[in-house]
């Protein structure tokens, strides 16, 4: 009870402060919270949900999933083969260092303005943290466990599935978490730069058209999307890494 009160206390206070401080606001740029919430309902619980919001999220998922597959596959190969890693590491370091949004104009040149471009943009940004973390994870697998696999003839797909990928999973998850926030950024950016629909496009449209409460509602929606996806991610992480967190908690007690 007390814990819930403490957890909810500050958020409630903050929202209340925002509500009352902005109530009856006449500042054009900072409308009342009640006005924003009204705009939120009018704007996003209608055709915009299906025409703009959901397609954006769909592209995000598509690009993210693709990046996950690519990053883990390539990362596993690179992590497991020392000469390949030595060969590719500097090149990968450079490619990763490019801030992903600047690739948007380049990818537009090659893939046009459609969905494909946006998915490629998301993949091109999300793949690096996943790939590099997978490499680290695969490289750092425990030698004794590797010996165990060899002496018990655990090889091939079995070894990959039950040993390598599981052993690397804490790092892979770390990379996937970084990739998720980059993915959201790129979803929005690609639509802000070049699109005729989607969340990013709509919000910029509101801003340029001085539909201020609508714009605020879009900002709110993006925030909620980020929070929602990160909560979803945590659910998956808990399930995948239950052993890891348990083991770490166990070690801390020592």
């Amino acid at each position: 009870m007390r814990r819930i009160a403490i957890a909810l206390g500050l958020p409630v206070v903050l929202v209340a402060v925002w509500w009352f401080a902005s109530a009856g606001s006449t500042d054009f740029y900072r409308p009342a919270l009640s006005r924003i919430l009204l705009a939120f309902r009018e704007t996003w619980f209608g055709p915009r949900l299906f025409d703009d919001a959901l397609p954006s999220v769909g592209r995000l998922f598509a690009g993210y999933a693709l990046a996950l597959v690519l990053g883990v596959a390539l990362g596993t190969a690179i992590g497991a083969i020392p000469w390949l890693r030595a060969l590719l590491e500097p090149a990968l370091e450079f490619l990763r260092a490019i801030p992903p949004p600047v690739l948007v104009p380049i990818i537009i040149l090659i893939a046009g303005f459609g969905d494909l471009m946006k998915v490629i943009v998301i993949v091109s940004g999300c793949v690096w943290p996943i790939l590099l973390n997978t490499v680290e994870g695969v490289r750092g697998v425990d030698e004794v466990l590797a010996d165990t696999c060899r002496s018990y003839r655990i090889t091939g797909a079995m070894r990959l599935r039950h040993f390598v990928l599981r052993a690397a999973s804490p790092q892979i998850v770390t990379g996937a978490r970084q990739a998720l926030s980059i993915g959201i950024i790129l979803m929005v950016i690609s639509e802000m730069i070049a699109a005729s629909q989607g969340l990013g496009f709509t919000i910029v449209q509101f801003q340029r058209g001085f539909q201020i409460p609508e714009m605020w509602s879009g900002v709110l929606l993006l925030g909620l999307l980020g929070v929602g996806l990160s909560a979803l991610f945590q659910v998956f992480e808990r399930r995948i890494l239950i052993w890891y967190h348990g083991q770490r908690a166990e070690m801390r007690e020592w």
Binding site: M192, Q207, M215, L222, G223, G226
Partner: peptide, 15 residues
Amino acid sequence: RPIPSVALIPLAALL
């Protein structure tokens, strides 16, 4: 924390 910083772009541009 997870609120994407790009969500602030229109706000910053406006203000």
